[in-house]
Each structure stands twice: as C-alpha cells, then as structure tokens.
Design a binder for these strands. Sequence first.
DNA 1: GCGATCCTTGAAAACGTTTTCAGTAATCGT
DNA 2: ACGATTACTGAAAACGTTTTCAAGGATCGC
Lengths: 327, 327
Amino acid sequence: MSVGIRDVARAAGVSTATVSRALGRGPVSEALRAQVEAAVRATGYRPNLSARRLRSQATRTIGLIVADIRNPFFTAVSRAVEDAAYAAGMRVILCNTDEDPDREAMYLRLMEEERVTGVIFAPTRATAEALHAGDLAFPTVLIDRCGPPGAHDSVVLDNAAAGAALVDHLVAQGFSRIGGLFGATSSTAQERRAGYAGALARHGLAPEARACAPNAAAAEAEAARWLAEPGRPEALVLSNGRILMGAFRAARALSLAVPGDLALAGFDNEPWTDLVEPGLTVVEQPVAEIGAQAMRLLFERIAAPDQPVRKVVLSGRTVLRGSTGPR
Amino acid sequence: MSVGIRDVARAAGVSTATVSRALGRGPVSEALRAQVEAAVRATGYRPNLSARRLRSQATRTIGLIVADIRNPFFTAVSRAVEDAAYAAGMRVILCNTDEDPDREAMYLRLMEEERVTGVIFAPTRATAEALHAGDLAFPTVLIDRCGPPGAHDSVVLDNAAAGAALVDHLVAQGFSRIGGLFGATSSTAQERRAGYAGALARHGLAPEARACAPNAAAAEAEAARWLAEPGRPEALVLSNGRILMGAFRAARALSLAVPGDLALAGFDNEPWTDLVEPGLTVVEQPVAEIGAQAMRLLFERIAAPDQPVRKVVLSGRTVLRGSTGPR
DNA sequence: GCGATCCTTGAAAACGTTTTCAGTAATCGT
DNA sequence: ACGATTACTGAAAACGTTTTCAAGGATCGC
C-alpha cells in the first residue's frame, strides 16, 4: 500500500541503495539522480523517518524538558530552541514536568528510549542536585537552573547579581523593609534569594524571605496571607514572572497602592509588566539567547563529547519602572 | 555496547519473542514474566522506540501545528493537547508556522514522513481553503480555524456570535462609531469580522474594519496609524489577544483615555487583561477544552476512520470589564 | 483414554531504511 | 600499455524490535 524505497527503485530502474544515495548525499551520477528524483515525484514517495532513524542510529531528535510551557519564560526559550532545532534538521520533543521530580525521571527515561541526540533540561532543585556527570545517557544542557558544578553544560542567568541589583535599587529608592517571595523548587530561586539576602546584609538590613510554588495562584495566595499580617514589608522582591503576577494581584485585591503602600520588583520582562499601572520593575532575562545558547552548547557537546564542561552565565537587564518608587 | 532485547533474552534464558511479550501485553507465564523483569533490571535495558515504531507501524505520535506557541492561546491549547497525549502514551511534535503557508506545507510533509498517528492543526486561511478531504495521509483535526465544511473534523469557537456579542455590548454601552481590527491570515478573524459587521448592520451602523498581521507589534503599528487619523472611531473590536495588546499599547502611547476616548473589546482572556487599568472586556475562549476536545475528536477519528466529519463549536464567555464604558 | 482446544513458547520473518562490501567501468600516471 | 586509483552501482547485511507461524504440553469434554 504505502510506497517505499523499493517502489521508487523499481520505478527508476535502479537499486534501493542508489535511491538512498540519491536522496542523501552519496555519490550518484547526475543521470541516475535525475531518474530517481523523477521516480520519487511519480510515486509520491515519502521516506519513513522511523526506519531511517533505526538504521542510521541518528534520531535527529532533541528533548526539551521544562516545568510548564505556559510560563512565558519557558515559552520564549522553547520557541528559540525549536527554531534552532528545525533549522538544523532536528525535531523537538517537549515535556512539561510541573516541577515534579517523578515526572522529570519519567521523561528522562523516555528520552533514553527515544535515543535522543541530546536534551535541554530545566530541572527542579531536587533533581539537579542528584544529577551527576555521566548519569545521563545523552548529552545534556541545563538551562535556567543548574546542578553541581562541572556535571553538565549549562546556560543560566547571573541570578545572585540580579537579585542583588533589585535590592540595591529598592534601597536607593528609600525602602528598608524589603521582603522576598521565592519559588520553592528551583535552584534559580535560591540563588536569587541568596543575592537578595547578601545585598540586604551589605546594607545592614534584615531579610524576610518566604517561599511558594512558582505559579501565579500559589504566589497570590501566599502574598495575600503575608500582606494581611501586621507589620508587612514596604517592598517585595519576587523571584519570577509568575510570582510577580501573583503578588501584584494580591496587592490589588488588598487595595494596596503600588509603590505607596508596597513596592514591587521582580523577574522576567513579560509583555504585560509595562502595561499595568504602575509599570513593574523587573530583571529581564535574554530568553531568546538562552534558548539559542543552549542549542549551541548542545551541538558543540555532540560534536566534541569529551570537551570540558562549560557554563554560560548571562546577565539580566534591570528595567526600572514605577513600581519601585521612590518611596 | 547498547543493551538490546537479545541481551535481555539471553540474561533471562528465554527468546526475544518472550521478552517482547512480557514487556508488552502478550500471553506470558508469571514465572517467565518475573524472570524477564529481573533481567531488564539487571541489564538496564531500555526499549528502542525507533525500532518499535518501525516494526509495529504505530508511531504513537501526534503532530501539533500552530502559528506561534508564544501566543498564549496556542500555549494553553498546546499544553492541554500534550497532557492528553502523554496520558494516552503518545508523543507530540510541535511546529510553529508563523502563519506562513510554505512552512505549513513543509510541516505537513514532515508529518507524513513521521507517519504520525494524527495531527492537530491551526491552518492559515489560505491553507485551510486549499485543504480538501483526503488531501492528508493522516487523521487531522483543525482547531481555532476551519476549512471547507465537511473536509475535516474541527473544534472552533462560535466566532460570529462572539464578534456580534462584543458589538451588541458596545452599542448597549452607547458607542456607535465602532471600528474593528482583525487578523489578516485566519478564517477565525474573518468570521469574527463577519459577526461584527452583521451586528453593526443590525443596529443600523456602518462597519469600519481593517486588517493586520496577528501579532502585537503589527497591531500596535496599525492601530497607532489609525488612531492618529482624524475622525477615529469611539470604540475598537480586536480579533485576538495579541491584537488587543497591540491596540491597548497604541492607545496608551497616544495618551487616549480608555474608555473615555476609546473603548476596547477583544478576544482571549489572557491573565494580564484584568490587571491593566481599566480591565479589558474580552471574549474568553475555553482554551483547555479546545485542546482536550481536539484530542478526543482525533482519537475517535483514529478509532473509526470512516465516521462522518464532525465539527465541535464551543461558545465564548463574554467577560465585561471597564474598557467598554459606559460611554 | 483420546481428540480437540487452549496456553505458552521459540525460530524466523518481517518493518523500511542505510551502509558495507564487492565489483565494474572509466580515468590516471608513468 | 598497464597497474593503480577513482567513481559509481547493486546485492545483501544490518538496525532492534514485533509479529507471524508452528509446535509442545497441558487441560478439557465426554
């Protein structure tokens, strides 16, 4: 029923080997190549990629494992990854873990079974810490979050510096009681928290940090609880775009004036952050470049499996808007 | 090097056929099944999915072809599709066409070569119109946009009704010069425009419709141009969330008060639309249900290839907010 | 007690390619 | 002119599974 390479070979009057070579880049005379191409058109032949992958042992597939594609950060990174992948003739398998280590493990096993060429992975902290060099059967680049030094290639933000920059700016604007709400599951949030705490210490201030699940709903609930307590902070640092949105929602629900009652500074320059009133001060991550660099690192790792582990640290860009004062 | 089913068979002291059956759902005695499972654990065997797919002729793969995953509508739909797919033991290949018919054609050919089990596709108008029953070698469900009636299963919004509902509401709020900015590439935008125009006619009003590429940047540019002209409309209907964002940006850049100088009503209840001031009136699409229904239709089509073509029409929910007045 | 039926099992044949291995014809160097 | 390359080509062997197919042994009905 389905037309295979044998049918093309018969139609072109050549062997299947010649058809394969004509379609790939084997040495074939011009005359035969033309015959084969005509036969392909005549028969409507479509190569079977499963067969091709099995025989050639090159799946040309990369896995992309993220927490949740609905987080605009991952959306943007994934788009960059896919563009680079398709441009290189590769296919992407996208997996959402919802920050669940069990699902991470499941998808990593799936990647093995797919015999992927490589994987780009944003692991939870728990998984990242347990992930040592050589654990994975395929080249892997960690993004956004990274594990123990030297275990895997990675491309991350300079999170501590970015967290500190937000604190410095808030202090310069006259705030001193600066709280922080950080994601509970990622190393990234921890680093941002460390930068936040370090900067506060440098200014002789005390940190007040809390944690929540890294999504808008959980952040809103936690922020609402916190802000209703007596003696709430004057300013809040939020460790990613989803948490920032949740906190902004909570402030609005409690009718807190921003920045009068509460200043807000967060991460991820999502398109809505300059649409609300006041605009929100954020550290913008170079999302497209993160994706592109991850693919570059992955390709280079594939080309040279034994080269030393590399870590690309990108800087965030602090975008100052009305939400951070002055006090 | 890599451990295959032969190694497992040898370790378990059985044939490869028995291993295959033990791993799948063939009839195997409990004793042997246990031996096989022990051998699998001992050897660290991982089935090779390429080989499995080739031999079984079941790729268990579905293609998802959308305009741009960064559009929150597609992000949400895709997440629903992927959840349903993985729950059914299927994998998803995601493709972004950027509304380019050439890329659509390319990805459709890729889907053929992948021998996908089925495809969920949001085609441009050009492609949808050229897409007749039997054109595609695989079961296909169209989402968001649909082609000629009866050609393919589809799940769409009742776009005309939704477009009309926005106009009715604007008229009820006292607006009469109601312009519309619609995406240029999708049938969906056209249907919304038709509903918009029909409702205006019903009210004895004249439509003023323009078109733009369905992304925020293009919409902002077009809206800025339009709103700077003399005699601009009192209200604008925007055919999707990206265009709504662009128009809101343009209004803000021109310092137009919403809804005082310009009322705004659009599509897609994206999370930011109730965060801006004023909140934006929108028709909310049931994004998760669109994805889930599409998968359901696809699975049912696969189970019964010859059943009549079905079209699921979902209703939008109009969310009234401050951006639409009263005048 | 005996044929029919059922349940398990293994050997071997697919699945649709690419790649190896030879072999032929043509070209080259001297 | 002759051996050595070089450039193509086809037959056949992979690739790692699942799925026949046939057969052995147990169970069943009577």
